[in-house]
Amino acid sequence: MDSMSLKDFAAKWTMGLILITAYVFLYMPIVHILFASLSNHPNFPYPPNFNPKSYVNLATNSIYQSAFVNSLIIASCTAVLSTVMGFLATIGVLRFAGKRALFYAVFFAGPLFVSEILLGISSMSLYYLVFGLQGNMVTAIIANSVHCFSFCFLIMAAMLYKYDWRMNEAAIVCGATPFRAFLEVMLPLTWSGIMGSLIVAFVLALNGLDISFYLLGATPTMPSVAWGALRYGVKPELYALSTIINAAVFLAIIVLFLKARNTKTAPV
């Protein structure tokens, strides 16, 4: 009996050790470049010191500014478009697909199984090489939305899976129009899923290089400027940019966490 529990203990802490190693592995580079962005010696910033020069350089660099605006537009439009599509798909699959639910679910998850670079290249083949259209923001937004759509669909499907549709019906029976039932009953109850989908799509489109790269031509986005700069050696500005993005993502995740926790504790 004693040896059994010892084995359990060993198994538990072996797994725990792998988990800790993995999280250290995932976060060490992020923390390293945080120090590097603030250091006078970006190559080996230990002991850490505080020097905001690279952030000032970043803020005053006009290429990054226009790239930031472009990325922001692409990410916002992508987040809205893919979330709306994903929401329709989720309701369609969970409520109206009947026996074909599995078929539609697999089809809607399809873009997940085609890598980003192939999505970018194939969309470019269609627009530019077949139709002769120049790359522009609209095509970049659409291609990004295809990629994000699957994530949105899966996030909202996971959240809406246990949604009680009778609540909508109850509202309709009480005289609400279907639209009003959606707006006043369903939307507040499923808001955390929709929010998660918006955030994930926004961040994916903000940081994805492959898709926008092939569909935008010369229009700069943040990842493409970062990639361009990378080819001429890493500069402290890039560390600063990376740190800001990481901080923003971290903040978004905290918002998501608080949202999810509140939803859980709220009486349903």
């Binding site: 995932l26 580079p29 590097a36 990376s242 978004a252």
Partner: peptide, 16 residues
């Protein structure tokens, strides 16, 4: 968090 910060920025971090 590391997943969402994008391929390019993560490669930059890894290069560091």
């Amino acid at each position: 968090v590391p997943f969402l910060s994008g391929e390019v920025l993560r490669l930059i971090a890894l290069q560091g």
